[in-house]
C-alpha cells in the first residue's frame, strides 16, 4: 500500500487501487480504471464504493455525466513532469464544482504537491521512495499565492491587495 496524504495529514488508505486484471475484493472501497468501471458494472456492484482512475488524456467535459456522482477520482501522473492532470483537476473543481476526493496517483513526488493541492487535489498517493513527513512539509512551502486556483487554502495576493 502506498503512502497517502489526505487533507494535510498522513493517512491510512481506506481505498484499494486495482489494475484491470486484479480480482475485485468484496465489500471494499476500490479504485479502477475508467475502462473497467464501464466494462464490469455488474461485478463492481459488490464493492462498498467505487472510485475511477482517469488517464491524463481523458476529456473531463466529455466524461462529466459519468463522473459526477463518484466519491473519488484518481488523476494520473505517468511521469512527474507530465502536467496534464493539473488541468483536469482544476476543471473538475472549478467548472464542475466536484466535491469528492481528487487523488494524485503515479509519479507523485514532494516538489509538486503544493501545485497539485492548489489545482484541487486533496489526496496524494506518494511514490514509494517518498518521505511522508517531508511531503507533508512541502504542502507549506509557500504561504500565499498570486493565483486563486481551485483551492482557497492559501491567502491570495490579489484579494489582499484589493482589500488593502
Amino acid at each position: 500500500m502506498s503512502l497517502l496524504i489526505r487533507k494535510y495529514a498522513i493517512s491510512a488508505d481506506d481505498w484499494i487501487e486495482l489494475d484491470d486484471t486484479a480480482e475485485i475484493p468484496s465489500n471494499a472501497k476500490i479504485i479502477v480504471s475508467l475502462a473497467r468501471s464501464r466494462a464490469e458494472r455488474e461485478t463492481l456492484s459488490a464493492a462498498k464504493a467505487i472510485g475511477v482512475r482517469l488517464d491524463n488524456t481523458e476529456d473531463i467535459a466529455a466524461l462529466w455525466p459519468e463522473l459526477q456522482a463518484l466519491p473519488l477520482i484518481a488523476l494520473s501522473f505517468p511521469k512527474y513532469s507530465d502536467g496534464r492532470a493539473f488541468s483536469q483537476a482544476r476543471c473538475l473543481r472549478e467548472r464542475y464544482n466536484f466535491k469528492g476526493e481528487i487523488r494524485a496517483v503515479g509519479d507523485v513526488q514532494r516538489d509538486q504537491l503544493q501545485f497539485m493541492q492548489r489545482c484541487g487535489f486533496d489526496a496524494f498517493a506518494l511514490r514509494a521512495d517518498q518521505n511522508a513527513d517531508e511531503c507533508l512539509r512541502a504542502l507549506g512551502d509557500f504561504d500565499l499565492a498570486y493565483q486563486r486556483g481551485a483551492s482557497e487554502d492559501l491567502p491570495n495576493v490579489w484579494r489582499l491587495r484589493r482589500q488593502a
Binding site: 513532469s81 482544476r90 492548489r118 509557500f142 493565483q147
Partner: peptide, 13 residues
C-alpha cells in the same frame, strides 16, 4: 509576471 509566477496549472507544460 505575477499571474505566471508559480502558476499551479502551467508549471509542467
Amino acid at each position: 509576471r505575477q499571474w505566471s509566477s508559480f502558476h499551479p496549472e502551467f508549471n509542467w507544460l
